[in-house]
């Protein structure tokens, strides 16, 4: 209980089903990291990365072990843990501003205060001029920016992102990476980020957690410098640097190795 860590996974196991047909989606995952970290989880399909995120979001109860945030065990979804899915999952009948203000409204927060924060995050994500539009009037990238802004309007302690840029085209994706990066640097927010893209993980993460499948478990943790170094640098420049490429290849070879073992 006294071990350090803002976000902690202690021997977390998740088993789906019963008896012979049971699947061990996650086996004794142990992970702890500090406030302000940007943790990227990568690994092939079935490695349990989404399962892990869902236990932290509170959507899924682990069958063994505990997940905790800031010293308190996770017992269900809560606004202190903001979530962004691959699909923007916006409320289509609400305007952009109403979507962003949904969390504060539900929590009965002071209106003026909430409005101020909605404005701040919509301006930050470049959506302020679209505040009276509806989600269907936005492009895919704008919709995902709104999903992020909506999560941030709740001032979460941690932002959980499950392949948030997976459905975007390559160019939009890089822009979004840059913007998210900028937001993270500005706020010092703790982020847990799941992706299929090793390059994305290496660029954004202060740490990359590599997982392996059947059963899902943590294979290796790799601390990375690029997220903190990249401050004012152009994204292409960072990604084409020799150190970046070496780190990317190392993670890739880990994942490749798994697939050759299999």
């Amino acid at each position: 209980m006294t071990r350090p860590g803002f976000v902690r996974f202690d021997e977390v196991s998740v088993r789906y089903g019963e008896g012979a047909g049971a699947v061990l989606a996650l086996e004794r995952a142990d992970l702890a990291f500090a406030q302000g970290d940007f943790v990227c989880i990568v690994g092939p399909s079935g490695c349990g990365k989404t399962t892990m995120l869902q236990t932290l979001a509170g959507f899924l109860r682990p069958t063994g072990g505990t997940v905790s945030l800031d010293g308190r065990p996770v017992e269900g979804p809560a606004p202190e843990r903001g979530v962004v899915f691959q699909q923007p999952t916006l409320f289509p009948w609400m305007t952009v501003a109403a979507n962003a203000g949904f969390g504060p409204r539900m929590r009965g927060e002071n209106r003026a205060q909430a409005r101020e924060r909605v404005e701040y995050w919509l301006r930050t994500t470049g959506l302020w001029e679209f505040r009276d539009r509806y989600p269907y009037e936005l492009s895919g990238g704008m919709q995902q920016r709104l999903a992020i802004a909506r999560a941030l309007c709740n001032e979460p302690k941690v932002l959980l992102m499950d392949e948030p840029f997976g459905a975007l085209d390559a160019l939009t994706r890089e822009h979004m990476q840059e913007e998210l990066h900028a937001v993270w640097r500005r706020t010092g927010m703790t982020v847990v980020f799941i992706t299929h893209s090793v390059e994305e993980a290496v660029y954004l993460g202060t740490e990359v957690v590599v997982m392996s499948p059947r059963p899902g478990r943590i294979l290796e943790r790799i601390p990375l410098p690029f997220a903190r170094e990249a401050a004012d640098q152009d994204i292409r420049r960072v990604k084409s640097g020799a150190g970046f490429i070496a780190a990317r290849e190392r993670v890739l070879s880990l994942i490749w190795g798994m697939q050759h073992d299999a």
Binding site: F59, P77, G82, F85, Q87, T89, F91, M106, R107, A151
Partner: peptide
Amino acid sequence: ERLRMAAALGASPRQVFWHV
């Protein structure tokens, strides 16, 4: 996912029903 999202944003079950 829409219902999960609403809960994650802090809506109570009753609010999820009426607002989502």
